[in-house]
Design a protein around this nucleic acid. Structure first.
Lengths: 236, 236
DNA sequence: CGTATCCTTGAACCATGTCAAGCAATGTGG
DNA sequence: CCACATTGCTTGACATGGTTCAAGGATACG
């Protein structure tokens, strides 16, 4: 147990998440040292596209936005990471400079994992290597779905889909509000459209009684209809 | 050495490619058995989206198109695989049904690799697991670039980029013709646009003396200008 | 050598982007 | 805690890139 900014952190909690589940406590402690865990405030940059990195991070709590910087600095959000997710590991594995940036979206506790520690564990524990392969493969599968949808669906369909994705990733509270605060511009940067288009479509959804909006909080009124608009097909 | 349809196949040739480079000859032979290698004709389906699979393939020769079936059956091409590439491995690793289809674009020799053989080798040879992690991570990085470009660039920019991508993947002959035959519709299905748009833009490029077209063969006249249109940024 | 597939072009339409301008909310520093 | 600055939100008007439909011609392949 360690105490960072009045927040308790217990590294073995991370074992509940899949990629670390085959590790013994001592392997996990070898990988993640408590003094490598730090708190980060909203808006902070964790790493920046193009940087060379010496390791990656595991999210203990909070939400991190992962994005690429595209044409004329426009950000393209690739995904949001939450507790149990690892970020920046792709570049460590591929040996390239980091190809995305990571920014804190909601105050977070992150644990740093050195490349050396990762590779030494991969050599010692083949099941961990297989679990990690599975994680990367899943992410690649999702990226392929994303490519297809951004290429073929309309902005309206993608917005509905994104709302469903946010619900599935972060859940909703008792009042059906999404458990993530996100600006209109960020929604646009997931979908690949203009902020104004998102605003217009959100207010269409509001008029159609699919959602309700209170500032930056989105309340889901008709999830079935949103799914239908998104025309999410079975990914089994 | 084996002889399939008058074509010599030598499995140890595959060792020149990165993902198999750390394997001994006996490990490679354990993974890929000669009698599991077969020839496939243009148009044949290797595997179909949604199928459950018992292994994956290594491309010995030829070109394979990997695509997802999206809205109303429209295909979204994810990538083309060529000699030395492996296909279908993502689903084997993630344990899901296969999330893409694979179709022969140019007559091919493929070697089948059973899931069991893969996992047993992963457990025995950690360096191979690391090499495979690197391969998947690279592909994920490319997918992220693809997402950003399809979301942010115009159809014209993406067409120029795709032509450059095809050049980099398959090369050009002495006359500067691309070493891959591809229909207008397939180009559209990479880019995520309509066939008619590709046709119009190709003839723009022709008028601007950037390319020349002879049926389905594309001759590159001004690679620099194409790269500039694609506004490919440095991915170092 | 005929049939299926692919290519091309024109015309009309519309979904989405862009620009501009004002308002609202949020955050910061004195 | 207020005032100011910054950032985010909204709406309207307009421009346009790209899609769709239709119809005819060209090409490839068994």
């Amino acid at each position: 147990m360690d105490n960072i900014n009045n927040t308790l952190i217990n590294i073995s909690n991370l074992k509940q998440y899949s990629v670390f589940k085959s590790l013994t406590n001592s392997e996990l402690e070898e990988l993640i040292q408590e003094n490598n865990c730090n708190s980060y405030k909203k808006g902070q940059i964790i790493y920046h596209e193009g940087n060379r990195v010496k390791g990656f991070y595991c999210v203990y709590s909070g939400i991190i936005k992962i994005f690429k910087t595209g044409i004329e600095g426009k950000e393209q959000i690739i995904r949001f990471a939450k507790a149990g997710d690892i970020i920046g590991y792709r570049s460590v594995l591929s040996g390239e400079n980091v190809c995305t940036s990571a920014k804190v979206n909601e105050d977070a506790l992150l644990c740093f994992i050195k490349s050396d520690a990762l590779f030494s564990l991969l050599r010692k524990n083949p099941q961990f290597a297989i679990d990690l392969l599975k994680l990367v493969s899943n992410e690649l599968g999702e990226a392929n779905v994303f490519i297809t949808e951004i290429a073929q669906k309309s902005v309206k369909e993608r917005l509905a889909e994104t709302i469903i994705y946010l619900k599935d990733s972060f859940g909703i509270d008792k009042e059906n509000y999404l458990n993530i605060i996100i600006t209109r511009e960020e929604l646009a940067n997931i979908i690949g459209t203009a902020t104004e288009s998102v605003i217009r479509l959100l207010s269409d959804f509001k008029n159609e009684k699919l959602i309700e909006i209170k500032g930056r909080k989105i309340k889901l009124l008709n999830i079935g209809a949103l799914q239908k608009i998104a025309s999410i097909y079975d990914r089994s």
